[in-house]
């Protein structure tokens, strides 16, 4: 087996494992009164895992696969601290720092790569107060993209839908809540649960979402149908519910 093919086979699983642990931490950290018992059963069980992410997924802190998986998840590695206001685990901060430093965006990086890296850096600065704000990537595309494309792009960057992490992407999302709602419905109709969950998280953060969308029920539907096969769906749905519970 080649080096590259070996990496390709283990990284998606590592991402899923970390996402499941983060979702579990979110599920166990606050009021779960609105959680439906069925789809939540698996994450709640795993919520008993506490401590650093590395220990939870049984990897060493300097494992390259763990660092790469943390880079893929971006700011969501620190989502429990950012969403629940709990102190971040120092080992998780070290993991996020290693992921940020190991995979800087290149000059030809896509908007998703550049923004996810910026989001990870911003999350670290928000929690630690260390470092200076980096130059934010270009967000001009958010004004010109047709709504299906905008919705898909923002769903890929749902890890930036965090309170306390202001960005030009969040500003763009605030300006187009109806377009995001359209994207959510489109994703559900396409059975694209990952996109629907990411958009649901943005919709939980921004004001002006049409009440007729029925976001809480939509999130439950997405979690029910997509959460079992994709831990990142569960993570985004749990983050969205946390945002909705914290909304005034």
């Amino acid at each position: 087996m080649s080096d590259a093919s070996g990496a390709a086979s283990v990284l998606p699983d590592a991402v899923q494992n970390i996402a499941a642990v983060v979702a579990s931490a979110l599920a166990g950290g606050g009021s779960r009164s609105s959680a439906s018992p069925g789809p939540e059963a698996a994450p709640e069980t795993a919520a008993a895992v506490s401590g650093p992410l590395a220990a939870a997924v049984e990897r060493t802190p300097d494992d390259p696969v763990l660092v790469a998986a943390a880079r893929v998840l971006g700011a969501d590695v620190l989502a429990p601290a950012l969403l629940l206001g709990t102190p971040p685990d120092p080992d998780d901060v070290a993991l996020a720092t290693a992921a940020r430093d190991a995979y800087p965006p290149g000059a030809d990086a896509t908007a998703v790569t550049a923004w996810s890296h910026w989001g990870l850096d911003a999350a670290l600065r928000t929690l630690t107060g260390d470092g200076l704000p980096g130059t934010a990537p270009d967000a001009g595309w958010t004004a010109d993209e047709p709504w299906p494309r905008l919705a898909f792009r923002l769903s890929q960057l749902a890890s930036l839908a965090l309170p306390g992490v202001d960005s030009a992407l969040a500003t763009a999302a605030v300006k187009r809540p109806v377009d995001l709602a359209r994207g959510f419905v489109r994703a559900v109709r396409r059975r694209d649960w990952a996109q629907a969950a990411g958009l649901g998280r943005w919709l939980a953060l921004v004001p002006g979402v049409p009440p007729s969308l029925g976001l809480p029920n939509g999130l439950a539907f997405v979690h029910h149908l997509g959460g079992a096969s994709d831990a990142r769906v569960g993570l985004h749905v749990r983050a969205a519910r946390t945002l909705l519970e914290a909304a005034p």
């Binding site: 990496a7 390259p64 660092v67």
Partner: peptide
């Protein structure tokens, strides 16, 4: 061979995009 950061970079980009 042990998995290295260099080997993982394309996969990180692929999963992000």
């Amino acid at each position: 061979a042990p998995v290295t950061r260099e080997a993982l970079t394309p996969d990180v980009d692929a999963l992000l995009n």
